[in-house]
């Protein structure tokens, strides 16, 4: 579910009216869709939208290379929060 929200945000707020095709595998960093400022904005959006704190050490290509990677990262944070809440 998070992939749709992330894809919509990137299309609406970052790509806007540029002619860029975006799917879950589009390489956001390699293609230059996410520059450093866009990445900061996206991180703030993720924190507000999903109620998680994105640590500096987590803002790495492995977690932000594509919509799919971001979604996977958000889901893992949710899982971690659930586990912490259960203990």
């Amino acid at each position: 579910m998070s992939d749709g929200i992330i894809r919509n945000y990137i299309s609406r707020e970052i790509i806007r009216d540029r002619a860029v095709a975006l799917d879950n595998e589009t390489p956001l960093l390699e293609e230059g869709i996410l520059d450093s400022l866009a990445l900061l904005r996206l991180v703030v959006f993720i924190q507000e939208q999903f109620g998680i704190v994105v640590e500096d050490v987590e803002i790495v290509p492995e977690n932000f290379a594509s919509v799919e990677a971001i979604s996977r990262y958000i889901d893992s944070r949710g899982d971690r929060a659930s586990r912490l809440g259960a203990t």
Binding site: S36, L39, L40, D56, V57, I59, V60, P61, E62
Partner: peptide
């Protein structure tokens, strides 16, 4: 950090 983490380190 890992390879490619330069932007994250710099932004931090």
């Amino acid at each position: 950090g890992p390879e490619g983490a330069g932007m994250a380190i710099f932004n931090s």
